[in-house]
Design a protein around this nucleic acid. Structure first.
Lengths: 294, 294
DNA sequence: TTGAAATGATAGAAAAAGTATCATGTCTGA
DNA sequence: TCAGACATGATACTTTTTCTATCATTTCAA
């Protein structure tokens, strides 16, 4: 089909007013359907008639009737607008049924997200959530990700992203009870588990007054295993308090309050632009529930 | 198909902007096609995305690409808008091809309109004209009449009608040469031809100082025949000068300047509302040419 | 690395659409 | 046949929407 010459089309609002007028056979009814006054409709229809140079509606006292031209035009308009409305409905429905897509670290998803998802799905059964654990920061705009969750000591400033704090937690040091039985040796003498080369981790260790050069490291190279290594008594490590709250409460892990108080905040990172309602709901729910026990 | 829920539809102008953006794959190109700035388009598309809560366009530096949802929506939009555009084109084309429809008296159409139509159709070959001679004033709005031509001594005030003077002409008295040979007898003694009972005609006769009670009348009852009766020498009568200018010039009729000068104006009467361009052209042409010789 | 051509952002101007109101016309039912 | 409900007509004024003008930033290509 040929291209549309938009410049020669009348105002779309006039077409809409006329379409409704035609279907309802009344300015007043059309006005009600659009939540405007009858005058607005009448003006729009008059302007359409003037644009086309054609009488579309025959006014006869209290009632109106379409002219022959009006009837033909209205048939086209109804069909066209219905096509458009159907397309919008389709996109909306589709968008609604898609799960909320969150991406975060393996760590956060394992310890914080997954345990809470069951609760959320009970509270909001019609909102599905899918989590993609990634170590790297994925390109949120090109992937279909609703938001990411990232840790940072200070609010990050990423252009084109909306940043929202989710939860703040102090970093604490934990170890297996076996390792920390009786009197606790100086931190410097304990076996540690950290990602060698990670600037943020090492900066924190230094802030705790440790000397990395002489510190033992039992790391295997996979950050997400650290928690299991610690649980198995292979060393101590630091985590946000909320990550290990359950372990500490149940006695699986024992907590050492570090000499320096350092906290980390987890931020929700949303691409600029529209946020899907479901995503917002889940995000709000997270804010409420991340601090609570599972 | 189900009714359209207009209230849940986004702004139509946003849909239009997006449709063009989708087809041109560029805000800038869409802007050019609509004769607006790129900012206008970008704003509209952003607002559409916000309305739907869906990303439709993926911005990547200097280029853009549609998301999957954007592609699906754009297909619907293009189809819908094309349907609408086609309907408008159809109505316009149809309206254009219809002849200009004029209604007036038999008299005016015979003496003034028909002789000039040939000239007009030579000058504007693509505008057809149809004349419906009627004595009565037809309902212009319910019939498909572009305009009527009516005579009146003063500008008439018809509600719902646009009145435009076409030509003004003095009423003169004419008779066949045979009847007015040699010395012309007093008007009161001549045989007259007028529509008995017509208030306007009789008022004019009285204004000429004639006494109707004693005036001879050769009327047959059909006003449009008067001119032939006069030509055949059966009596004298009064006409707007322009009606009989040719007769007088050619000597078919002889003119008597009446004692009182009375003029009559012919008005074009157009129903309020849109005027078709062709009708306006013909009307303007008439204004220019009614005063000229045929 | 410089210019052309996109998009992004946004305050303020312009245009479009709508409201409020009053007038008029026409059915309907007491 | 008269009042009242309900429709359209007309229009000054207000509100909302849309667009412009402008400047910044990004990208691509010569």
């Amino acid at each position: 089909m040929s291209e549309i010459d938009w410049k020669s089309l009348p105002a779309l609002s006039s077409l809409r007013a006329f379409e409704l007028t035609a279907r309802t056979q009344s300015f007043a009814a059309a006005a009600r359907a659009l939540n405007v006054t009858h005058a607005a409709i009448a003006q729009r229809v008059r302007s359409l008639e003037a644009d086309l140079g054609v009488h579309l509606v025959r006014r006869a006292g209290r009632t109106i009737a379409l002219t022959e031209a009006g009837q033909r035009l209205s048939r086209h308009l109804t069909e066209g607008f219905e096509t458009i409305a159907a397309g919008i409905a389709e996109v909306k429905a589709d968008e609604h049924s898609k799960p909320v897509h969150v991406t975060t670290t393996v760590f956060f998803s394992q310890l914080m997200l997954l345990p809470r998802l069951e609760v959320f799905s009970r509270e909001c059964p019609d909102i599905r959530v899918s989590v993609t654990p990634t170590q790297d920061i994925v390109d949120l705009t090109s992937q279909d990700v609703d938001f990411a969750i990232r840790a940072s000591p200070t609010p990050p400033d990423w252009p084109g992203m909306r940043i929202e704090p989710l939860i703040t937690s102090d970093l604490i040091i934990v170890g297996a009870p076996a390792l920390l039985d009786g009197t606790i040796p100086p931190l410097q003498d304990l076996p540690w588990i950290w990602t060698e080369g990670s600037e943020t981790e090492e900066a924190v260790l230094r802030a705790f007054g440790l000397h990395l050069e002489t510190l033992r490291n039992a790391d295997f190279g996979v950050t997400s295993y650290h928690i299991s290594l610690v649980r198995r008594g292979l060393g101590v490590s630091m985590f946000p308090e909320v990550f290990v709250r359950d372990d500490v409460a149940s006695g699986t892990l024992r907590q050492i309050t570090p000499p320096t108080k350092i906290s980390v905040t987890f931020y929700a990172v949303t691409p600029v632009g529209p946020v899907r309602p479901q995503a917002q709901i889940f995000l709000d729910w997270l804010k409420q529930n991340l601090g609570r026990d599972t």
